[in-house]
Design a protein around this nucleic acid. Structure first.
Length: 477
RNA sequence: GGCCUUGUCGUCUAGUCCGGUCAGGACGCCAGGUUUUCAUCCUGGUAACACGGGUUCGAAUCCCGUCGAGGCUACCA
């Protein structure tokens, strides 16, 4: 049985890159009928927060990446916990002692200044600096200043990366690295090895910024006699300037996208296609479909730029796919968020407003941007009431015709108002434009807007007649 | 600097393993159609094999070199 894990550090909200790494771990685990686990890497007590952890696990579940094991919104799942590193200090200690015992790790009293001097000396001789601590064979008693380093011997470490292929490192270029500040404070490269072993992780799928850490972890893994792990290093998601996605780039947290009204299925689809494809032209997949088709072999090797326009396009596709009920639910929610007074409308009207917006928005936060005219009589320049070469008098006549027509139509017939009006236009030998343009502008006050039929159905007969009269009045001025 | 990774339209990518269709699709952009207008939708167009050698009848694909990009180089993760 294979097992993957995502091991986020709770030092900020769920990052888009973390989400994608989680997604690929989830996809691989599910495709292989294995287990997807979440472990919280909060060894850095200073930067880790409870809120970040909460945001991360909530965000992952919102995306549908529900863990089989580890930390979840319902608490911890599984027998191999605790799944927060901050609660595992007692577990790490014996392994640290084992490494000291075996001579693979040693206490080192080198100060920062002393290391700087060694660096300088190497520099002066224009040699490559590799730290070989003078304490590596000394077995000193640790003091307050001591740190525990791994004794690196000269060898070659290689592994077959499931995405990048064969990768080899020469450890003679690797310094004696620190694995713990003291017996109670082990560092990342060490704990990750212990946890992955104890939690029986079989496949480590992570960002390719971790490639350089891999030989260190393999060294520790071997010294402890642990089982060999499979590695797969994902290419990074890049900002438009090809740099690592950071604060400089707009929205980097899943929370921000969620709040803007991006759908989880859109985000999943987008993130999956950012670095993976089935080998054909298909571009829309549900999470289940990606699971079925997923393979690490088809993961891209180079970084991908995060293109918000593509996300928008995918999101608007999924918005249109939503059931009418869901569209109304989310639409209403965002209308309220955007401070529109929805109490003005009954259920039917609200439904119409949202339906009118569905084709126009890329994300739900866009809702309501250009429809404030529905709420109140708009102010506008009367010149725009004229269709093409119409004179003021033509516009007034046109509006009068519309007024008389709407006056005769019952609100109960508003479902078919488009048909009624168009039929009347034909019958009276009018042009569509000469009637519909002035009418629409009278109702919306805009040169570009939804159709008059949709607006009438929402604002109702009384308001429609009022606005037509208003338009006639400002034309007469 | 060193080590590692990586290079196909502006962007995401198919094709590369196993050389041989005008290098395909999507997003964007442009044009046309539909519509009173906008949006939606439909049709079409624009645009790429980083560069230089080599192997070959033939190279995006194989080999060598160059250049570019990114990551790491912490007592962070």
């Amino acid at each position: 049985m294979i097992k993957t894990r995502i091991a986020p550090s709770p030092t900020g909200n769920l990052h888009i890159g973390t989400a994608r790494t989680a997604l690929f771990n989830y996809l691989y685990a599910k495709n292989q009928k294995g287990i997807f686990a979440i472990r919280i890497e909060d060894t850095d007590i200073v930067r880790s927060t409870q809120e970040s952890e909460q945001d991360i696990i909530e965000g992952l579940e919102w995306l549908g990446l529900i863990p089989d094991e580890g930390v979840s919104i319902k608490g911890e799942i599984g027998e191999l916990g605790p799944y927060r590193q901050s609660q595992r200090a007692h577990i790490y200690k014996p392994y640290l002692e084992q490494l000291i015992q075996s001579g693979d790790a040693f206490w080192c009293n080198l100060s920062e200044q002393e290391i700087d001097i060694l660096k300088q000396q190497a520099d002066d001789k224009s040699e490559q600096f590799v730290l070989r601590s003078p304490y590596r064979d000394k077995k000193i008693k640790p003091s307050q200043e001591s740190v525990l380093r791994f004794k690196v011997s000269d060898t070659k470490i290689s592994f077959e990366d499931k995405i990048k292929g064969f990768i080899e490192f020469d450890t003679s270029l690797l310094g004696d690295f620190v694995i713990a500040k003291n017996l109670d404070y082990p560092l990342y490269n060490f704990v990750v090895v212990i946890d992955d072993e104890l939690m029986q992780i079989t496949h480590i799928i992570r960002g390719d910024d971790h490639i350089a850490n891999t030989p260190k972890q393999i060294l520790i893994n071997q010294a402890l006699g642990f089982t060999r792990k499979n590695f797969a290093h994902l290419p990074l998601i890049l900002a438009p300037d090809k740099s690592k996605m950071s604060k400089r780039f707009g929205a980097t947290s899943i929370r921000e996208y969620r709040e803007q009204g991006y759908l989880p299925e859109a985000l999943i689809n987008f993130l999956a296609l950012l670095g993976w494809n089935e080998g054909n032209d298909r571009e829309y997949y549900t999470l289940g479909e990606i699971i079925e088709k997923f393979s690490l072999k088809r993961v891209q090797k180079s970084g991908a730029i995060f293109n918000i326009q593509k996300l928008d396009s995918i999101n608007s596709h999924y918005i249109k796919q939503l059931s009418p009920e869901k569209q109304i639910e989310l639409g209403t929610q965002y209308l309220i968020q955007n401070r529109f007074d929805i109490k003005k409308w009954n259920e039917r009207q609200l439904k119409s407003i949202i339906q009118l917006e569905i084709n126009r928005i890329k994300k739900f936060a866009d809702i309501g941007k250009e429809i404030s005219f529905l709420w109140k009589q708009p102010e506008y320049n009367p010149d725009i009431l004229a269709f093409k070469a119409m004179t003021k008098e033509d516009s007034i006549t046109s509006l009068e015709w519309s007024y008389q027509l709407v006056y005769t139509i019952e609100e109960s017939q508003f479902d078919t108002i488009e048909f009624i009006i168009k039929e009347a236009i034909q019958k009276d030998n009018k042009q569509m434009g000469e009637i519909l343009w002035p009418l629409r502008v009278a109702l919306s006050g805009l040169e570009k807007s939804p159709s008059p039929f949709e607006i009438i159905a929402i604002i109702g007969k009384e308001e429609t007649l009022k606005r037509i009269q208003y338009a006639q009045n400002i034309l007469k001025k």
